[in-house]
C-alpha cells in the first residue's frame, strides 16, 4: 500500500474488504462461542489446514477454489467422524494427524503447480483487500445461509453442547448437532481462508467469543456480543492496517486481541455476568416436608 490512508478509505477494495470482514465477523461470533464451549479450537485449525489443501487442489486440477475448498474441508469432517470411531486414539491425536497430513499434501501439491498464480503469503495470512464483487456475493449468500441455520438450530446446538445425554434423551439428536457444527465450521473456514489466511482463522473465530465471555450471562448474549466485538475488531483492524500500512489479516486479529485485553479490565460488577446469587443463603431444609 503506497497511497495515503485518506484515499484508501474510499477505494472500492477497501469498502469490499470492510463489508466482507464485517459479514464474516457476524457469522463467526456464535460459531466461535460453540468452539470455545466444545473445546474444539484445534478442530478449527485442522480445517484451516485442510482449506490450504483445497486451494492447492483447486489450482492443480483447475477448478474454482469456491468449489475445491469446501469440498476438501467437508471431506475432512467426514474423515474425522470416521476416525473418531477408533477408540484407541484420542480425538486430539486424530486432529493433529489430519491437520498435518492435509498441510503436507497441500504443500506438495503447491510445489507441483510450480508456483503458478499462487501467493503463499496470501494463503497463510489472507488478503482481505483482494476481495472482489463475486467474493462478496459468495460471502453474503453463504454467510446468510449459515447464519440462518445457526439461528434455526440454536437450541439443539446448545443442548448438545451442555449435555449430549439430556439432548438425546429428550429428542434433540446430539449427533446431528455435532455434524451440523462441523459442517458449519467447514463452510465458514472455506469462506474465511481467503480473507485472513490459514494461520489466523481460528484466532478470528475464538478471540471475539473469548472477549465476550466475561461480560455476558447467557449463551445467546455471548454469541451476539462475540459478533459485535468481531465487527469492531474488523473495522479497527482494517483502518489500522491502512493507517499504519501493515498487513490486514494480522491487523484484524491484533485489534481483536487488544479488545480482549482491554475488556478483561472491566470490573465484573459492571457486566451482565455480575454474580446475582443471593448472599444470604437461606436454608429451607424441611420447610416443605410434612
Amino acid at each position: 500500500m503506497t497511497c495515503g490512508a485518506g484515499i484508501i478509505m474510499f477505494d472500492d477494495f477497501f469498502i469490499h474488504a470492510l463489508f466482507a470482514g464485517i459479514s464474516l465477523a457476524i457469522i463467526v461470533g456464535p460459531l466461535g462461542c460453540l468452539i470455545i464451549w466444545r473445546k474444539m479450537a484445534f478442530f478449527g485449525d485442522t480445517l484451516a489446514h485442510a482449506a490450504l489443501l483445497g486451494i492447492a487442489l483447486a489450482i492443480l486440477i483447475d477448478i474454482s477454489s469456491l468449489v475445491g475448498v469446501p469440498l476438501v474441508t467437508l471431506a475432512s469432517c467426514i474423515a474425522l467422524m470416521i476416525a473418531k470411531r477408533t477408540p484407541s486414539l484420542s480425538s486430539d491425536t486424530i486432529l493433529a494427524i489430519l491437520a498435518h497430513s492435509t498441510l503436507a499434501l497441500g504443500l506438495v501439491l503447491i510445489s507441483l503447480t510450480g508456483g503458478r498464480s499462487l501467493d503463499v503469503n496470501g494463503l497463510l495470512f489472507g488478503d482481505i483487500l483482494a476481495v472482489d464483487t463475486t467474493d462478496l456475493l459468495v460471502i453474503y449468500a453463504g454467510g446468510g445461509a449459515i447464519l440462518a441455520i445457526i439461528i434455526w438450530q440454536w437450541r439443539r446446538l446448545i443442548a448438545a453442547t451442555l449435555s449430549p445425554e439430556i439432548a438425546e434423551a429428550e429428542g434433540l439428536s446430539p449427533q446431528r448437532a455435532e455434524w451440523l457444527f462441523m459442517m458449519l465450521i467447514a463452510l465458514v473456514v472455506s469462506i474465511a481462508v481467503k480473507l485472513v489466511g490459514v494461520l489466523l482463522i481460528t484466532a478470528l473465530m475464538i478471540i471475539p467469543a473469548a472477549a465476550a465471555r466475561r461480560l455476558v450471562s447467557s449463551p445467546e448474549m455471548m454469541a451476539g456480543l462475540a459478533s459485535l466485538l468481531g465487527v469492531i475488531g474488523v473495522i479497527a483492524g482494517l483502518y489500522g492496517s491502512a493507517e499504519f500500512d501493515i498487513p490486514s489479516g494480522p491487523a484484524i486479529i491484533l485489534a481483536g486481541g487488544l479488545l480482549l485485553l482491554g475488556l478483561s479490565f472491566v470490573p465484573r460488577r459492571l457486566t451482565a455476568n455480575a454474580n446475582v446469587r443471593p448472599h444470604t443463603h437461606q436454608d429451607e431444609v424441611g420447610h416443605d416436608a410434612k
Binding site: W37, K39, T161, L162, E165, R213, S217, S218, M221
Partner: peptide, 9 residues
C-alpha cells in the same frame, strides 16, 4: 452432569 465454566448459563 458437568457444565463447562465457559458456558454462561
Amino acid at each position: 452432569l458437568h457444565i463447562d465454566p465457559a458456558l454462561p448459563m
